[in-house]
Design a protein around this nucleic acid. Structure first.
Lengths: 143, 143
DNA sequence: TTAATAAAAGATATTTTTATCTTTTATTTT
DNA sequence: AAAATAAAAGATAAAAATATCTTTTATTAA
């Protein structure tokens, strides 16, 4: 569904969101441990999310990653688009470049619905939305 | 969503289904042209589908690929599973190995629905089902 | 029974994705 | 100011996916 990179990205951002709610910034190493991902690779991913403004970062001691109130309003769809692009929301299920209503692949209509469902789900999931669930350990980000 | 390999596989099998309905076997080259895919790579894919019994093949002149009545009853889900495995139907959206009801990722429930929808859609799509659509050019397999 | 055809099988190459390591820059604390 | 910390940036490596090419095997037709 998503690239591995994107899976790490989503888990990382939710981890950071949770910590930010608690008012603490987290280092790459902390996040990597928290979501069970390769540290250096995650560094690259956070770097990219930081460039795109989805996560905030500060260098130096007391530095780290965090989400401010503004960032907390981003949705999972924004994260996915930042990493994997919008292929999953707009691309053809069978890989046709010019798939459209006029020239549809055989499962165009059905997939349109699926893709739209995925988008709605992700678009409606704001980054700050999972904090309670995670705090209560009713959902996890590793293993 | 699917690997490129799987996209080619689905397009190829629907192409072969259509031709088989018309009673003709098709060569790798024909299929590659018909679905706009790299010929040798497609050869490997059809080889695999043939091993798994989803498509039938015959060597030599007058040989080629085809679907018999039995093969025509396979669904797109069978093709996807043959090539990409069942990860898309059963795997966790965030890549957690042990994601489950008991230990769910934050979007477990929502994704379960999505995955189930995808499975139903593909499971209900039998390989022979698109022949008319393709004959009438109301759906396409290339570009 | 030989030549031609087409898939199967095997080997190799290229590209993309995933992962790691090193150096630089910014910031803070001592 | 110097030392320590942590992200940014850049370089390199490994693995997986995609693509290509060659050889072998089975089958048919002349």
């Amino acid at each position: 569904m998503f690239s591995k990179t994107c899976e790490y990205a989503i888990r990382a951002i939710l981890f950071i969101a949770q910590k930010s709610k608690q008012g603490v910034k987290v280092s790459i190493k902390d996040v990597a441990k928290g979501i069970d991902s390769p540290e250096f690779f995650l560094g690259k991913i956070l770097q990219e999310l930081s460039r795109k403004g989805i996560v905030k970062s500060l260098k130096g001691p007391t530095g780290g990653f965090y989400l401010d109130d503004e960032s907390m309003q981003y949705s999972l769809a924004d994260v996915v688009i930042a990493i994997d692009g919008d292929k999953i929301f707009n691309g053809c299920g069978l890989g046709l470049k010019q798939c459209s209503e006029k020239q549809p692949c055989p499962i165009h209509k059905e997939f349109k619905k699926i893709r739209s469902d995925i988008f709605k789900l992700l678009e409606n999931s704001k980054l700050g939305e999972f904090n309670d669930l995670l705090d209560k350990r009713l959902a996890v980000l590793k293993r």
